[in-house]
Design a protein around this nucleic acid. Structure first.
Length: 99
DNA sequence: TTTACGGCTAGGT
DNA sequence: AACCTAGCCGTAA
């Protein structure tokens, strides 16, 4: 059982049309190293196979994406989450909490 | 062992 | 609201 696996499991638990944050994920993994979550996502061997684009910053800003911000926006939109001015629209309502 | 560095965050200007 | 700063915690080198 490693962090990667854990992370992927959590990603898959995010409902369609919703997003989560680095901080929330870190907490759900039983740690407080939210920055580390970013590293894991960046090193994700299959960015195409896991919804890593569904993870944004705690204030609703996009954060980053290995394949580029534009691509992240595209995927979010395709998932039912619209982005405007680099922020998730109606973020608080689209935020999914694991607990 | 130490250093540098992240797809960050919270807090202050 | 936008920008800056200092913490944050595991890795990798």
């Amino acid at each position: 059982m490693n962090y990667q696996h854990n992370l992927q499991r959590l990603l898959l638990k995010i409902p369609h049309g919703k997003v989560s944050t680095y901080r929330e994920i870190a907490h759900a993994m039983g740690m407080c190293a939210y920055r580390f979550v970013g590293q894991l996502l960046h090193k994700n061997p299959h960015p195409d196979k896991f919804p890593c684009y569904k993870v944004v910053q705690s204030d609703g800003k996009l954060g980053g994406f290995a394949l580029g911000d534009a691509e992240k926006i595209r995927r979010l939109k395709a998932d039912g989450v619209s982005v405007k001015n680099g922020k998730v629209v109606d973020f608080t309502h689209k935020f999914h909490r694991f607990s």
